[in-house]
């Protein structure tokens, strides 16, 4: 088996400030990898580099594409990369407003990827959009409402539906539950766990919430100051942290 995503020596800096230093890992099909760390530790920069949204100074990101075979994300032409990112990949932003078209209805939001790859049957697109609303537990009668009329949690679920409608193989998630209240967070985590399981997705999940990481991820990478300080199975890292920073992170979870 070949890894879905193979990252080697990834380095990205903004001027003198190094955001990611020599990051490397393999992501295997069906696996969910968590990236945790405090804010400013380079988690989001790393995610953007993986998704081709930022160009790193050094290192490579090899992706095993279903359509084109193994490719280097940063050597691809922009056309190919954009095609990949709307067919084989998904990207869930922390702020749903960044990932949604706020001016058009939920149905159009979900249908956009389908139309982008050539779907031209209104009835079919609409049926698929309604089906996906069901899957993310939004009532069907909200299909023609704009995301502006949705609550924060619903927007996030809509964003997830919009990304998953094209059956991507790999989803990048940047704090998908950040800024939501706990009960909504729980629902979204539940939903994500179910979808990842049923759709055979692989995912890279950035979070600063160790609870989220514990629930969703199989493996965990701990970042500090742009470098990976610890890497292992999630339960192992959280139950038996080796690095001083990880120990501090685990110890600082508030007991309820």
């Amino acid at each position: 088996m070949t890894p879905l995503l193979s990252v080697k020596g990834l380095t990205k800096s903004f001027g003198a400030r190094v955001a990611c230093r020599d990051v490397g890992f393999d992501l295997w099909p069906g696996e969910v990898l968590g990236i945790v760390g405090e804010s400013g530790s380079g988690k989001t920069t790393l995610l953007n580099c993986l998704a081709g949204r930022l160009t790193p100074e050094a290192g490579s990101v090899a992706y095993d594409s279903a359509a084109y075979g193994p490719v280097d994300v940063h050597d691809l032409s922009e056309a190919r990369r954009r095609l990949l990112s709307r067919t084989e990949w998904g990207f869930v932003n922390q702020d749903a407003r960044d990932g949604l078209r706020m001016g058009v209805s939920a149905g159009a939001n979900i249908g956009e990827r389908l139309m982008a790859v050539g779907a031209r049957h209104y009835g079919d697109i609409r049926a698929k959009a309604a089906d996906w609303l069901d899957r993310v537990e939004i009532e069907r009668d909200r299909l023609d409402d704009r995301p502006t009329t949705y609550s924060g949690g619903m927007r996030q679920r809509l964003q997830i539906a919009r990304n998953l409608v094209s059956h991507p193989r790999l989803v990048f998630m940047d704090e998908p539950t950040g800024g939501l209240d706990v009960s909504v967070q729980a629902r979204i985590l539940d939903l994500l766990r179910r979808l990842v399981g049923t759709l055979d997705l692989s995912a890279v999940l950035v979070t600063h919430d160790l609870g989220v990481a514990r629930l969703l991820t199989h493996r965990l990478m701990v970042m500090q100051g742009g470098a990976v300080v610890e890497h292992g199975l999630t339960d192992q890292v959280l139950d038996d942290p080796q690095h001083a920073y990880t120990q501090m992170l685990v110890a600082s979870i508030l007991p309820v």
Binding site: V104, S105, A108, G111, E112, A116, V117
Partner: peptide, 14 residues
């Protein structure tokens, strides 16, 4: 990449 144009027509029908 003309998906967005089709989105506007979809929205009109919806």
């Amino acid at each position: 990449e003309y998906g967005v144009m089709q989105v506007s027509l979809y929205e009109s029908i919806a």
